[in-house]
Design a protein around this nucleic acid. Structure first.
Lengths: 367, 367
DNA sequence: AATTATTTGTGCGTATGTATC
DNA sequence: AGATACATACGCACAAATAAT
């Protein structure tokens, strides 16, 4: 006898069954031993076996069929009674392209009988931790997550590891962590930066400024494309023509970067701007300086959000896949959950939407 | 003996306990009878009592404290193990003010240890039904819902009734159904329409046009305010100066209402426009007609969304509480769930944000 | 078509352990 | 220390559903 055991017998049995499932000795839909068999095999009473199995059923590991047996999984087949739930975590909910992404995710999930448990991190690691901890209590079937401060090292990797141990598929969107090898669906931001910059170069611009966000990985990728386009064209990037800002500075815009920005705008004939939101603000600054777009300065931005067509000057912008990205992600995750796919690495190539904020450089200005 | 009983004894006991709780004979935190007492009282074995109580604990009705007793609620206090879930249903996810509302809801829920199960109806009754049916599988603690096509009769009232029978608090936001008496947190849209119109009247406008949405109740309320302001000032509303549009027409804008709109704009010195989104489109139309805002036409809109400051002309608009509305709703719902409040009827008064799209009528034009 | 074996579902009685007051 | 409460555990019996004989 094991009297030294602290754990109750039904607990030990539960753990044994879970291990067996995790080690794939028992797969989705397999029948496990009958209650009597387990009782005999482990030398415990049937009642005790029932307690263990009862809790596992409650936790979603097993399901019982009267007269037939006990099986691994959540229901007689897949979409049984229990609607399964997907966790979705983004940095923001109301920032301009996230609603579209979330909407894309939701539409696909609904169609396939999944529900969406949504939370957001406000781009803070502390909040990301809170969100992930909350999800522990929900037995989710999968997780779609947009990384928080993706350019920085992440302190919550332990929780990601825990989910992975539990065999919950994780899918990153709109960026991924460098030190966590996972599935992802992202925009090809380097390409986006490249075609935006190339567009300006092809129209004769040589003095091109760049405004990028430094604490999100997209900013760095878009800058990489910006750089690549310059190199291909044999152009130098003057350091004074590149401005980096972060989340906080984007909010209280005026004070902190206004000086640098005005300085930058004066020396350029074209600007590549991190996103539409920032571009709209730059439009106002230019207007204040008495410069007009695109006559005096050309402006290319990213994302093709609602804002891009809200101003008088319709912005030329690189279209973020937005809703399509959300849809792709949801489809891929469902494939992973239902075992049709093991990994997923999708880079979506964005396209340039030409509107009215860019103009060919006139011969005069060129000289 | 009740041999005719089809239901098992533990089921009957469960139902009895739930009823007792629902009838408030047992309140949050109260101790229920001990297992032995219940066994004796109902003439069943203690084991059977344990089965009933065990399931109720699992479903979140009760919690047990070793050596002390079994209590009503779902944890020693509040944030026990099981995080509770709130259902949130809106018409759209990416339309411009909903993200802010959802964000407000989310922030308060997170703070109080609730999670958010989100879905949207795309303003279709059929989808609303699907969403409500899905929620049945999730044992939600409460529901925040924005009515779908709130000006029309609703075919899904049976599902609302079902939730009410289950004692799940329901809170309507951003509108409510006329034939379902429930709690709500809404904007005072009549007031909003009133102050927007009054603003124009006070600046000397007499020929004021109105553009309203007909299939959402807000459109009708805002029109009511529009009318009230006219009546107070002793002005007539010319029928030719009021244009009604619906969801579909807002999407494929050009074809269907363009003619009427241009006609309307020609005859007015000021326009009251259903929301910022439509106002931005009207700005473009006016620009196409060679008219400028506010020099030729003044424009007041509603909601104070991101779009209101995205255009060159910053819109004078009635500020929708947006995020605050979401926060209020979440707070009220939590109060209802935790028994601190029974009903909730909040009308939030919006305020006029004066920007640059409105101008005083010049004496010349007046005459 | 009826029987039988197997498996889960419901229910009772009992015993011992352990936490709380 | 004792009373009371929940926690774990064993054994038994019968009902109901299922599948194979």
């Amino acid at each position: 006898m094991f009297k030294g055991d602290q754990k109750p017998k039904y607990q030990r049995l539960k753990e044994y069954i879970i291990e067996t499932i995790q080690q794939k000795q028992l797969k989705f839909g397999d029948r496990i031993f009958s209650e009597n068999e387990l009782a005999e095999r482990f030398g415990i009473s049937r009642h005790t076996v029932r307690q263990a199995i009862g809790e596992l059923v409650n936790e979603g590991w097993l399901y019982r069929l009267h007269g037939k047996g006990t099986f691994v999984g959540n229901g007689p087949y897949g979409r049984g009674k229990k609607m399964r739930t997907i966790g979705v975590i983004t940095t923001y909910l109301n920032d301009y392209i996230f609603p579209a992404i979330i909407c894309g995710i939701n539409s696909v999930l609904l169609e396939h009988g999944y529900d969406m448990l949504l939370s957001c991190t406000y781009n803070q690691h502390r909040m990301e931790r809170l969100c992930l901890e909350n999800l522990r209590n929900h037995s989710i079937a999968g997780l779609i997550i947009e990384p928080t401060k993706s350019a920085l090292p992440n302190p919550n990797l332990d929780l990601y590891q825990e989910l992975r141990r539990k065999d919950v598929p994780i899918l990153f969107i709109h960026g991924c962590y460098e030190n966590f090898d996972g599935s992802y669906v992202v925009e090809d931001d380097t390409w986006a930066g490249y075609i935006a910059t190339k567009h300006l170069i092809e129209l004769g611009h040589t003095r091109i400024g760049g405004v990028f966000k430094k604490d999100d990985i997209q900013g760095h990728y878009r800058f990489a494309g910006f750089k690549k386009a310059h190199e291909e064209a044999g152009l130098e990037i003057a350091p004074s023509r590149v401005l980096w800002f972060d989340t906080e500075q984007a909010l209280n815009f005026e004070s902190s970067i206004m000086g640098d920005l005005i300085c930058l705008l004066k020396g350029c004939s074209g600007i590549v701007c991190y996103n539409d939101q920032m571009a709209i603000k730059i439009l106002d600054v230019l207007r204040g300086m008495g410069l007009s777009v695109p006559e005096d300065v050309s402006l290319v931005s990213f994302d093709d959000s609602q804002l891009a067509v809200a101003s008088e000057v319709k912005l030329t912008t690189v279209a973020h896949p937005q809703e399509r990205l959300g849809q792709q992600a949801a489809k891929a995750l469902i494939d992973m959950i239902e075992g049709r796919q093991k990994r997923c690495s999708i880079k979506m190539r964005p396209e340039l939407i030409v509107r009215g904020s860019v103009k060919k450089v006139s011969e005069m200005a060129k000289v």
